[in-house]
Amino acid sequence: MSGKLFYKKIPLEELVILSQKSDYRALEELIKREQKNIFATFTYLSKKRENIADLTQEALMRMARGLINLRNPKTFKSWLNQIVTNLFYDELRKSTRKPQLVSIDTEPSENSFHTQIPDYRHKPAEKAMSLELDTMIKNEIKSLPEHFRIAIILRELQGLSYEEIAEATHTTIGTVKSRIARARGKLQDGLKNYI
């Protein structure tokens, strides 16, 4: 079995242990496994599109550097999400401090002459519909209050338990329960024409 394939088949927990023992190939595989998930998480959490890649890199960097201090490899997932949550709150603090800037490289407005070439393959109508729904979902999630947003993302995208979410967001299980329920209520309201 080639080396790469070997690391691909190793369960997450073992990969964490190997990475802690300075096995760089294990760490590389660990990063590869987690990066898509972290990228997706920040796609829903961060209001600024241009920050997503930076936040993902920073989270992975903190993961790679801090892994040695993780005592229980079983708690890797919730530990990693704690990093993600902290970065999200850091970004929030930064964005509230900075004044809103208007970029000259803004996306083309409705009045500009950018044309789009229609793609008639792969059922364009359905694709457009799912694309529209996807955009709607992202917008609805991003319009949720921050605490609701992080709670629902950690639950639905990361699959954390209420207890783990409470720990990551420094709050109680009761508060997490209420935040998730209210986030769902708001999302249902916002997406009622689509679901």
């Binding site: 990063i31 890649a53 993902t56």
Partner: peptide, 13 residues
Amino acid sequence: TKNEAKEDYSKYI
């Protein structure tokens, strides 16, 4: 969204 993430950061990190 997960599948849309094409970037590989492992080497860089």
